[in-house]
Amino acid sequence: MSEIVISLEKVNKWFDDFHVLKDIDLSVIKGQKIVVCGPSGSGKSTMIRCINRLEAHQGGKIVVHDTELTNDLKNIDIIRKNVGMVFQQFNLFPHLSVLDNISLAPIWVKKMPKKEAEKVAMAHLEKVKIPEQAHKFPGQLSGGQQQRVAIARSLAMNPDIMLFDEPTSALDPEMIKEVLDVMIQLAEEGMTMLVVTHEMGFAKTVADQMIFMDEGKIVEQATPDEFFNNPKSDRTKLFLSQILNH
């Protein structure tokens, strides 16, 4: 059961002259929950955005479910159908209702009949516990509700892997919990998750592996136990001391 679903080998990326990812090596096993943390500018968002080709890597190899990520558009399509992404800014489509937001991709990418797509959409809305908002528009929802709709939208495509790019960083404190609860439930159901976040409580609860990134490199990778109680690198120690002393 240790099937590797994502593998990054010696991945390098530059933004013009700036070397943002340096020799990244990472393997994600099916069902694993990996939390990535680190100071801003460390490349953690860039790394997960490379996995669904929102950013293109220049060096190294990225393989998702046996499909290599290159400029080949067909490969990119296959990968995007199986990988879901939740953004920090939600990025819901403001001109569509909540229901339409979620059923859009099933209809147009999976070519589902409309009624079936709406059933799927409602099922996922219930999963994130806001089925009554189906016919509202994003502008009428709170931040926490919007992010939960965004999660439902990605889940509606039935991905095997979910990427989270700082999903709670744009939320007011009282709404963070509702989103994290959904993510914890998802983790318990066995989803493979790669989460970039500062929420260390969540990490301790859910993560199988902790990754600390700094200046484009993976500095430390360990189980949460070792990571929090016995960090090996000095930089990890410094980061943890800054972030855990609230």
Partner: peptide
């Protein structure tokens, strides 16, 4: 139209012409 709209559409697997037309 914010960049995030395009990215969210791409992340869902929508093809370019649909992204243009629908979003």
């Amino acid at each position: 139209v914010s960049k995030g709209q395009r990215e969210a559409s791409q992340a869902l697997g929508l093809k370019s012409n649909f992204i243009m037309r629908l979003i």
